[in-house]
Nucleic acid binder design. Structure first.
Lengths: 336, 336
DNA sequence: TATATTCGAGTAAACGATTACTGAACCAAA
DNA sequence: TTTGGTTCAGTAATCGTTTACTCGAATATA
């Protein structure tokens, strides 16, 4: 591997000149620049980033913290990040932390050691205020999950409004007995969706039936079927279900089938996220589309701007939308 | 951020001594060691890896090349890699290359620049002989896909035997008209599975009906339904289908349903991989389990050993097994 | 006691870049 | 011709480690 010294020798100039040419500075004789370029090409010189990083205290590397890379929701975000990183000439260390705080702190300490210039955090919980002390010093952005009371740039959709849209759609179809399979966790998205669920109901003059609320981890199909089963087996079960993730929706549909209920004729189901398998089986699930890829892509753009010390908005909200498929039916008014 | 010099000053020793203590060398007075430890603790010193890397030409970083991180098969392997990396104290750059050779070469050039100590390649195609020139110089292992004619350590299952096992299981259930939904790509696993399919049939005294062979990209659900549809719509369609991935199997099941065929009563289907959604809907799909996570974990162990200049086997084969669920039925012999 | 050997700690040279500083060459104005 | 100002290339310090080398002190041996 050729170094700058080799290039300098070959071109018969000093290494300072080589550096100047390589960094595109003016103040350098065109003739010398030509000689340097030539030597670079001949020796196939490529800069050693480790040396540059040491000297410049910059690594052109990011840290990505994700709770679980095998979850499609996260991996789609990461795909967006990956694409953006490529475009910006950044690399990233990926860490599967499963949300372990101690591990995450240890990893973020690399920012101080200049091993990374910034970080993107996926799936941070509410109340994780220890993140703030890193965010105060280094470029950090949060993806899809964040705590609104902290002052850390984040990108996500409007979960409250998205949930409202979904539930109002159900109401618009004539449903009044609406339940939810939600998650009882410390994610802002979960509490916002629950709030949207409740507000949509009460604002439409309906009362929230607490019996119609069930919880299951948002990425746990089995837990969801179980929760939905207990909700649907009763005599006066809801006619529609708002699920805060597609996996949960799929679980609900599975348990409905198990109970001999038809989806959507007997029970309507609406999901959230729009992952691949919503259209693998009938009924294809009607769901709220979250632009995962774009969220990641945008978050990357944000960190890069922060690294360049540009001002970035604290909050950036990307658009969600409903996609209408087969799992929601109009409720016949005469049967009510 | 404290440096070694700060520690040395505080402990009243030279930086060489600090380095020796930190690297656990003997030949150092216990009293001095104590003073150094104390200073390290007081200053919360942590080594600067960039400097160390520059000096030692070692980065404790790996490169992971994956065609598509949003594919569950790959992301599960990566989860295994991630776990192993954590245990070994390695970080890794993850790249979503979509199999673009030029990009992959550019990334592997980082090995030469000492930005990474080794690499794990997922999803390499047959005939990708350009990889060899990197593998000759640097620690590289291939995960699940490889070309047996090259001399690069790899870890995978025995795809030929796994396919045979699956097809022989079908034969054992009385099936004689057996078709396949395979992939017409340059992956060794695909050709091996096809070979296993053919051999299982002919070794059982059955003839391979070329009409019963269909192709679809292994991760493309829609293409699979289409392919299976064209195969199953005929009068004398096969009674069993060997699909080289679960997504393909799911696609086949979907099109069977569309055609009014019952799975498994009218058509048996067996898949490959055992990803999460094989048990989301009935029939739960009978499939060949591939230990993705372990493959990744093992591959990581291999690169680490190569980096430490230990000898590693060129081929390591992990165990597959069949998991029997609901998508395969015994063929009533009287109807034959 | 004189000499050889061992031990342990400090000095300084790497690793490969960037960049502040220095100084030569040139030109313009006085 | 002298002075001052530009322009531009080279010298050397620097980033924070590791480690070859040096050297004094302590210990062992004769």
């Amino acid at each position: 591997m050729a170094t700058m010294i080799d290039v300098a020798n070959r071109a018969n100039v000093s290494i300072a000149t080589v550096s100047r040419v390589l960094n595109g500075m003016k103040n350098v004789d065109p003739e010398m620049a030509r000689r340097v370029q030539e030597a670079v090409a001949e020796l196939q010189y490529e800069p050693n980033y480790t040396a540059r990083n040491l000297r410049c205290r910059e690594s052109r590397t990011l840290i990505i913290l994700t709770p679980n890379i095998t979850n499609l929701y996260y991996s789609n975000i990461i795909a967006g990040i990956a694409h953006g990183a490529q475009e910006h000439g950044y690399s990233y260390f990926l860490f599967n932390t499963e949300g372990k705080r101690e591990l995450e702190e240890q990893i973020l300490d690399r920012l101080e050691k200049r091993q990374a210039d910034g970080a993107i955090l996926l799936g941070a919980e509410l109340g994780a205020n220890w993140i703030q002390k890193y965010a105060d010093q280094y470029p950090i952005v949060q993806c899809s999950e964040f705590d609104p009371s902290y002052n850390i740039p984040h990108v996500s959709i409007d979960n409250y409004q998205a949930a409202r849209d979904a539930v109002e759609y159900l109401i618009g179809k004539g449903h009044t007995r609406i339940g939810t399979v939600s998650s009882n966790n410390r994610f802002f998205s979960s509490v916002e969706r629950m709030r949207g669920f409740r507000d949509a109901l009460t604002d439409a003059g309906l009362t929230v039936n607490e019996e119609y609320i069930r919880y299951a981890a948002w990425d746990n199909f089995k837990a969801s079927s179980k929760a939905a089963y207990s909700l649907l087996k009763g005599q006066d079960h809801p006619t529609a279900l708002f699920c805060i993730s597609d996996i949960l929706a799929l679980g609900a549909i599975a348990s409905a089938k198990e109970l001999g209920l038809r989806v959507p004729e007997d029970i309507s189901v609406i999901g959230f996220d729009d992952v691949e398998y919503t259209t693998m089986f009938h009924p294809y699930v009607t769901t709220v589309v979250q632009p995962c890829y774009e969220i990641g892509y945008h978050a990357l753009d944000l960190v890069c701007n922060m690294i360049r010390r540009k001002d970035v908005p604290k909050t950036t909200v990307l658009q969600h939308h409903l996609v209408f498929r087969e799992s929601v039916a109009v409720l016949p008014t005469d049967t009510e």
